[in-house]
């Protein structure tokens, strides 16, 4: 046997690849498959909106006001005679873009702040931590309304608002994870071999705090979609006549007894997509957690 020649040699433990783990976590649970299908459909519909929507979402028709579902209008029409399905399909674009852009921007910004605060500690940490605490003291929605009141409404303002609202959450998780990772001997080992601090952070800290950040991002995507709807509902987000799920509900509410279909359609979609992202977040967390992947 080779074992008797080389004292250190032994068969290596077979290592389940990241993809294998991911596959196992995703396909062992029906709920995750469901979530994945919903998310994929959501992205496809948003991307291919012009091809899928049967009508122009802005086109009004006096003749088709407040129609219940029919062959021509599968989810009915609203008080201006606009096709609800088409508005929902186009509305998904705003939800999707906003749902992704803000959490991802917030993840980058928050991770940067959290890692810097956690790694360097001291004065930097005190400043960053106080700002985080201050921002976390406000509910996201309240914070968003506050900022929107100053900046005004509109899509990009909503993006900015949500990014600011989400950043402290990421910063706090990144800071806590960095504090834990910083205690690991491999960080001291990196210092001892003479690696510069920015490289230590990039190579040895960030990859090892990535898991909770990724999970948090997935969960915040769901929140972002929900918050976009809330803000649009309050008239701060996407401005009419452009459709978004939030303002579809707002418009629908004024016309609840004329046609409940816009509210039912948008409400169902928001619930479905938010649920799907939450389930996906759970799955990703389990896939990335080394304890669970054993």
């Amino acid at each position: 046997m080779s074992a008797s020649i080389n004292p250190a040699l032994q068969p290596l433990a077979s290592q389940p690849s990241v993809f294998a783990t991911l596959r196992r976590v995703i396909f062992d649970r029906p709920a995750t498959i469901f979530a994945l299908v919903v998310v994929i459909l959501f992205v496809l519909v948003a991307a291919l909106a012009p091809l899928i929507a049967p009508y122009d979402p802005l086109a009004q028709s006096i003749l088709d006001v407040n129609k219940p579902p029919s062959a021509a209008h599968p989810v009915g029409t609203d008080q201006f005679g606009r096709d609800v399905l088409s508005r929902l399909v186009y509305g998904s674009r705003n939800s999707l873009i906003l749902g992704f852009v803000s959490p991802v921007l917030a993840a980058i910004l928050g991770t940067f702040l959290g890692v810097v605060a956690g790694y360097f500690g001291g004065f930097v940490d005190r400043i960053v931590s106080r700002i985080i605490d201050l921002l976390l003291a406000f509910p996201e929605l309240l914070l968003a309304i506050l900022i929107a009141a100053v900046l005004g409404g509109g899509f990009w303002n909503v993006v900015a608002v949500l990014t600011v609202a989400f950043t402290p959450g990421f910063a706090r998780v990144a800071r806590a994870s960095t504090l834990a990772v910083k205690q690991e001997p491999y960080i001291e080992a990196a210092v001892a071999v003479g690696l510069r601090t920015p490289m230590i952070i990039l190579r040895h800290v960030v990859p090892n705090i990535a898991a909770p950040i990724v999970v948090l991002t997935t969960l915040w995507i769901a929140s972002a979609i929900r918050l976009e709807a809330s803000l649009s509902f309050l008239g701060i987000g996407t401005q009419p006549p452009n459709p978004s799920w939030g303002n579809i509900i707002r418009d629908g509410l004024n016309n609840l007894f004329g046609s409940p279909w816009p509210i039912i359609g948008a409400g169902a979609l928001i619930t479905l997509v938010v649920l799907a992202f939450n389930l996906l977040g759970d799955a990703v967390r389990d896939a990335l957690d080394p304890e669970a992947s054993r």
């Binding site: 001997p185 491999y186 001291e188 080992a189 190579r203 990859p207």
Partner: peptide, 11 residues
């Protein structure tokens, strides 16, 4: 280092 598990960057 003492700890053969912690002293190597896991990723």
């Amino acid at each position: 280092f003492q700890d053969p598990f912690g002293s190597l960057s896991p990723r």
